[in-house]
């Protein structure tokens, strides 16, 4: 299963190793090879400590491999300088976290356009962009609200809008529904399905099977290795499935 071709795809990992030394060496990722084709929706499952977050950090250019290579949009992430990697993160990747991770003192619109600030995009176009995206995630009337004034589900929607703002090549989501109740979680998954339909490339970590089934395929990680890549044949109907 690990012999999947690592050449094409918007993100490729080839024989990526990441080892932590805390007395015993811990192989957080052990020769993982993987490719994310454009427009694909991939879920990652696995027990706690199996390397899911480490994999996300690799793809997200927050971490670099001890061995092997990671490419994003053709660029070898490990060869980039710190500053260049930061720029790449801002332009090619959109992060969605379990804890939402919005800046509490910025408004929804300002949070959405924060990644543009670090790409030196200026001007009134920013606010238009925020309005478009927030409208798309159903928060067109909440532009000037700050995160403490929003519910969990609304915050995650703002985070999704923020992840989309620089038109990234890949959207990374680490347990995006982990902090939400079932109903709100399925609303968020609805949004993911929409993004997928619109052609976004998504990599999502989850430990819930029914969440993972929204993806095209599910990667099962165990002890830093890909144990199985499962292709999902039938996605669950998103609308009303949880409330029924």
């Amino acid at each position: 299963m690990q012999e999947e071709t690592a050449t094409d795809g918007i993100v490729t990992l080839s024989e990526v190793k990441r080892t932590y030394y805390l007395g015993e060496p811990v192989h957080a990722l052990d020769e993982v090879s993987l490719s994310l084709p454009e427009g694909s929706f991939t879920a990652v499952m696995g027990p706690s400590g199996s390397g899911k977050s480490t994999l996300m950090n690799m793809v997200g250019c927050l971490d670099t491999p001890d061995d092997g290579t990671v490419t994003v949009n053709g660029q070898d992430v490990g060869a980039l300088s710190d500053g260049k990697r930061a720029r790449l993160r801002g332009s090619e990747l959109g992060f969605i976290f379990q804890q939402f991770n919005l800046l509490p003192r910025l408004t929804a619109a300002e949070n959405v356009t924060l990644p543009m600030v670090f790409q030196n995009v200026v001007g009134e176009s920013r606010r238009d962009r925020a309005k478009t995206l927030l409208t798309r995630v159903g928060l067109g009337d909440r532009l000037d609200h700050t995160p403490p004034e929003l519910s969990g589900g609304q915050r995650q929607r703002v985070a999704i809008a923020r992840a989309l703002v620089n038109e990234p090549s890949v959207i990374l989501a680490d347990e995006p529904t982990g902090n939400l109740d079932t109903e709100t979680g399925s609303e968020i998954m609805e949004l993911f399905a929409e993004l997928h339909d619109d052609g976004s490339t998504i990599l999502m970590v989850t430990h819930e099977r029914h969440i993972a089934e929204h993806a095209d395929r599910i990667i099962h990680l165990v002890d830093g290795q890909i144990e199985e890549i499962e292709h999902v044949t039938e996605n669950p109907p998103v609308q009303g499935s949880e409330t029924a």
Binding site: L62, R89, G90, S91, F95, F118
Partner: peptide, 8 residues
Amino acid sequence: VMKAVGAR
């Protein structure tokens, strides 16, 4: 968070 969204 700022670093994740592209801050150098």
